[in-house]
Design a binder for these strands. Structure first.
Length: 453
DNA sequence: GCATGATCATGC
DNA sequence: GCATGATCATGC
């Protein structure tokens, strides 16, 4: 049963707006929350809009063509962000690949969204959450081009018999996230492979939702765009556009590039600045609308003369007392690897130790490699729980967390301002802040693999 | 030459 | 003042 009371998007929006500022406890007339039945979305559907919960392939408000979405925001130091990705409909692997974008289940159900943000508060009861704001959302044209390309990418993986390898990081705004437990019952058949694939749903990435919240709901100002004219994306992906733009600058030395763009100093993010200049941007590429929405992070890689990669790749440190309470599936590090797209800016040293721009490539971690990271992550948590063994050495303090030779993909190493930059351990005492690193030889393999395509 | 502990430096 | 991306530099 879907809703027939509301016939236009405007009526729906007015009703939704009437809930802004109210707590869910105030809205919940059927005592769902009190009885612990169902989530926040159910309360809105049943008590605010007064319709039966359903799982139709049509939008929640079929006559208005509007799909209702209720989703949490969370207050951070620098303001509100989306707490999660926005999970949309489940992908039917057997059917979806036969369709064109316009006929796809994603577009049919989700082309117009009524998004209601509520503010999540840690340790509070659901009934205390407040509806923060609401927006009737249609994708901006420029986004739609990227979303279409994302959709094509997801469907092409199904067509290649690789439904089990789809990762949210494969795409920019529209993702395909796994949905359901890791148990057998959430595995599905796929048309072009015998391999069962985990059930997946379309999703709007968390980074995309944060942008929607901050800019389209809370009124934050415009950011620079990489793509100035939407037409550019009609026959070009964002990734290809960038790679093509950089092409003429390959094999120039870092110094030549600095001279070319009148960059007189060499800060540590100099390579990011060079790429931004090549793309004719006023600001840093990371600040652009596209990179923020897609959660694309720039990483510099330096290749030695002998072809080896000089350094492993660091990530933000983790908190020892927090990580032991995480589950791998929902852990910060897995989420980061899954949802981040990386732009590798690759330089190589020549015999005279001069750095040359060799290549730029987009990369995200293949799902199979996440299983390796899982091992490292679980071992790390196990050791922290049972007590890290620390040994004083000539060069400082070493520990027994997974090292470079333990695993082909990742390891753990210190990452603070210095060795005195520490955090408490759950078993007592303190230790220098640590983070996960992607092994330099693993990165090398990833760069080489991309050359064989 | 590499693994690993340590630290720099920008930018928010 | 700290988080983070980037890089240094010792010692085996």
């Amino acid at each position: 049963m879907s809703n027939v009371t509301y016939k236009t998007a405007e009526e729906i929006l007015i009703k939704a707006k009437s809930a802004v500022g109210k707590t869910l406890g105030e809205i919940d007339t059927t005592q769902r929350l009190k009885e612990g039945k169902g989530g926040v979305g159910h309360v809105i559907e049943e008590s605010l809009f007064e319709y039966k919960i359903n799982s139709s392939s049509r939008p929640d408000f079929p006559e208005a063509g509007v799909e209702l979405k209720v989703t949490p925001s969370i207050k951070k130091k620098n303001g509100y962000t989306a707490k999660e990705r926005l999970v949309l409909n489940i992908i039917n692997y057997e059917k979806e690949y036969k369709k064109q974008f316009e006929e796809s289940s994603f577009w049919q159900k989700n082309n117009t969204l009524l998004i209601m943000f509520y503010e999540y508060i840690k340790d509070a009861a659901k009934s205390e959450y407040k509806v923060q704001a609401t927006i009737l959302y249609k994708y901006p044209l420029a986004d739609l081009e990227i979303i279409k390309a994302d959709w094509e990418k997801i469907v092409s993986k199904i067509r290649l018999g690789k439904a089990h390898e789809i990762s949210e990081g494969d795409t920019l705004y529209l993702g395909a996230c796994t949905k359901g437990s890791t148990s057998d019952k959430s595995y599905r058949q796929q048309p072009f492979s015998q391999q069962l694939a985990r059930q997946r749903a379309y999703s709007l990435k968390q980074s995309y939702m944060t942008y929607v919240l901050q800019h389209y709901v809370l009124g934050k100002g415009k950011d620079e765009r990489i793509i100035k004219d939407v037409k550019t994306l009609e026959d070009n992906s964002l990734e290809k556009y960038i790679i093509d733009k950089v092409q003429p600058y390959l094999n120039k030395s870092q110094q030549e590039l600095c001279d070319l763009f009148a960059l007189r100093t060499k800060p540590k993010n100099i390579n990011e600045i060079i790429i931004s200049k090549i793309l004719n941007l006023q600001n840093n590429i990371t600040k652009t609308e596209e990179f923020q929405k897609a959660n694309i992070k720039v990483k510099t890689i330096r290749i030695n003369t002998n072809g080896g990669i000089k350094e492993s790749m660091s990530f933000p440190y983790f908190n020892f007392c927090d990580i032991i309470n995480e589950e791998w599936e929902t852990s910060s590090f897995k989420t980061l690897l899954e949802s981040t797209k990386f732009l590798f800016v690759i330089f190589q040293f020549d015999e005279s130790n001069t750095l040359y721009l060799k290549k730029v490539m987009f990369w995200n971690m293949p799902v199979q490699d996440l299983d390796e990271v899982k091992k490292v992550w679980e071992k790390t948590v196990r050791i922290i729980k049972s007590g890290v063994k620390m040994t004083k050495t000539k060069r400082g303090c070493s520990n027994n967390l997974p090292n470079l030779t333990d695993n082909p993909v990742a390891h753990v190493r210190p990452h603070g301002q210095n060795s005195l930059d520490t955090l408490p351990l759950p078993t007592g005492g303190n230790m220098t802040k640590q983070c996960f690193w992607l092994n330099n030889n693993y990165i090398k393999k990833q760069v080489t693999l991309s050359e064989q395509k």
